[in-house]
């Protein structure tokens, strides 16, 4: 019993302790002119879905709910944001060449079709980010249309 108490206390102290380790927040007040939503005519519902399910890791601004400001979730997120932005940053969309846009759109389509994105580990803590069948169909339709118009 005592061991249990001590373990719980240790974990609690560690949990509180790690909250003081600083993390780099991915936050920005301005949306650059090169943003995907600003340069493409994106339907409002698709905009909402992209914002909710993709922009946390694929833009310069993450909407942090309290649990994502808490360690160790914040670390987990930090790494994924770094990787996610390197792979695709919607904020920098119009800076991509047409060739690259085409590649990115192709990857968006297959990642959504194969249900690899949004990541399970992310939708596990961020339930709203999970794409419903309708949202998926809607995004895919728009992205495919955009790809064909390139």
């Amino acid at each position: 019993m005592k061991i249990l108490k001590i373990t719980a206390l240790v974990l609690l102290v560690a949990f509180v302790g790690i909250q003081f380790i600083p993390t780099n927040r991915n936050q920005s007040d301005t949306v650059p002119k090169t943003d995907f939503m600003l340069v493409n005519n994106v339907p409002a519902s698709v905009q909402n879905t992209l914002q909710e399910s993709c922009y946390d890791c694929h833009s310069n601004n993450t909407a942090y709910p309290w649990y994502n400001k808490t360690q160790p979730a914040a670390w987990f997120l930090e790494d994924h944001i770094k990787e996610g932005k390197a792979e695709l940053n919607f904020n920098e969309w119009s800076e991509y060449s047409d060739r690259r846009k085409n590649s990115k759109l192709r990857s968006i389509i297959s990642q959504i079709e194969d249900e690899e994105m949004p990541l399970d580990s992310y939708t596990f803590i961020h339930r709203d980010a999970k794409l419903s069948e309708e949202e998926k169909a809607e995004i895919l339709q728009f992205i495919k249309q955009l790809k064909n118009s390139l």
Partner: peptide
Amino acid sequence: KTTVSILVLSVTLLGFTSCK
């Protein structure tokens, strides 16, 4: 003793977790 060991343990744990 208990307090000290808890502190030591916590710090060790902290060290581990921060070493990503």
